[in-house]
Design a protein around this nucleic acid. Structure first.
Length: 203
DNA sequence: AAGAGGATGCCCT
DNA sequence: GGGCATCCTCTTC
């Protein structure tokens, strides 16, 4: 299947891009093993104007520096001292937009993923939630700055017709400190998929 | 130089 | 629904 190229990641609308990533495939070939699957859950982080973003107000530190690079770069950081969280930097250089990939449905290297996760069945817990997903694909903080048009971590189109995808917007997770921005529905989920970390409330 | 806390996950009740 | 693991990054002194 066809690898996504630079132009895809340069979209200036990070919220649209987060939605467009649902149904694409995320792959890694790390430690000699190819693993990946269909993206089922994402969150948009809109840089300097988004209180939930690490780059809010133009913050620029050693950690966040990669967010200021060109779209199609990985931004990986450690959360709670335990979990690596994988983001895709978007937009042109110096605009620190990013999309957090929260969940995938695995379709490649499932045995390897089960081994890395210490789980011996193919169940949603394997690759849902950003920390679990990064562990499944062996993505660690050393991979921050990786070029996503290369051959270590990359994205592909899937064979799912994009018109057939039902996508649900929802509030982002774990950003209660972000005031009004915490209410924005900038998380996107594949409808009715069990491969998501926080299913939306039902009515 | 030191301390607080975080875009989480897992296990317990 | 609550506690805790675990450590890096950033802020402040």
């Amino acid at each position: 299947m066809k690898k996504l190229t630079r132009s895809f990641f340069l979209n200036p609308d990070v919220v649209s891009l987060a939605r467009a990533l649902i149904g694409k495939r995320l792959l890694s070939c790390i430690d000699g093993r190819k693993t990946g699957g269909i993206i089922t859950e994402t969150e948009a982080y809109a840089g300097v104007t988004d209180k939930a973003s690490h780059a809010y107000g133009g913050r620029r530190t050693g950690r966040t520096e990669t967010m200021y690079g060109i779209g199609g770069t990985a931004y990986v950081y450690l959360c709670y001292g335990v979990h690596s969280l994988f983001n895709i930097v978007t937009n042109r250089k110096d605009i620190p937009h990013a999309v957090l990939i929260r969940s995938i449905r695995p379709d490649t290297g499932i045995d390897c993923i089960m081994q890395r996760r210490g789980i011996h069945e193919n169940i949603p817990r394997l690759t849902t939630g950003p920390g679990s997903l990064a562990q499944a694909l062996a993505i660690r903080t050393v991979h921050s700055g990786t070029d996503l048009t290369g051959s270590l971590i990359w994205l592909e189109n899937s064979d799912i017709p994009s018109g057939s995808l039902r996508i649900i917007p929802a509030r982002r997770i774990g950003i209660d400190y972000a005031g009004k921005d915490a209410l924005k529905k900038w998380r996107f989920l594949l409808a009715d998929s069990p491969w998501v970390s926080h299913p939306p409330a039902k009515h």
